[in-house]
Amino acid sequence: MMKKQLNIVVLAKQVPDTRNVGKDAMTPEGTVNRSALPAIFNPEDLNALEMALHIRELAGNATVRVLTMGPARAADIIRDAMFRGADGGYLLSGREFAGSDTLATSYALSCALRKIQPDLIVAGRQAIDGDTAQVGPQVAEKLGLPQVTYAEEIVELKEKSIVVKRRLDHGTEVVESPLPMVLTVNASAPECRPKNAKRVMKYKFALTPSEIAAAPDTEAARRATEKEYLQITEWAAADVNPDPQQLGLAGSPTKVKKIENVVFQAKEAKKLTAADCDIADLMVELIASHTLG
């Protein structure tokens, strides 16, 4: 008898690349010019995608789909995931979601997940634009599912449970959780497989209905309309039956009171060169002042 299909959903986020805030990304006043930052696939969500693809291989009969909440251009990371091996994806998009804090975000995602009914939800531990690590556990709580955070390796996939090795600050723990459940994946888990050239050829015309509507006469739109596997599911708020009070700014208990751009206050540093005399003088001074030794 054919085993029941295991449906896996990866929660992913498109984020500004805050790791590489170069000189051009700063305004002359020393503030961040957000539009100059490239939008990327959140790094730990790529680790999550890899873990999901690996579980699909272990399961044999399984699917991996990506769920993301964001603006229209966030469909890029769904295509990116398809190039790397995902079967498809869902984009949750709309003005109602604007201004969501982590709690409103996890509420919106949990509404979409109720509709999808996956057997396993895999997310990156945290996103680099906020570093909060809250959305995975908050989604699990909203769905009443167990969670395993900081997953590093799948030890065993059983019919009704999963055995996972998780990374802690000073060691590791192996735990077994029943399915369905939520896994959050640590950066120390295996890196995501690269884009596959054949898959890029196959899925480069995968589009959301909005993207098709925006340019209906293009070759890409025609192909995506014909082939179901090229259609990325797109949901507005109304499609996932939410309580509107729990969405966006209204559904966010945390409010940003104040934002200060970091402008470094210059202090007079003593400027030295790499010349022998400069370094020798410095070391003598540090020893004399008992800062060293």
Partner: peptide, 13 residues
């Protein structure tokens, strides 16, 4: 700090 440390945010509930 938020946004990769490029801003400092004050949050209230």
């Amino acid at each position: 700090p938020a946004f990769g440390g490029n801003i400092i945010a004050t949050i209230v509930n």
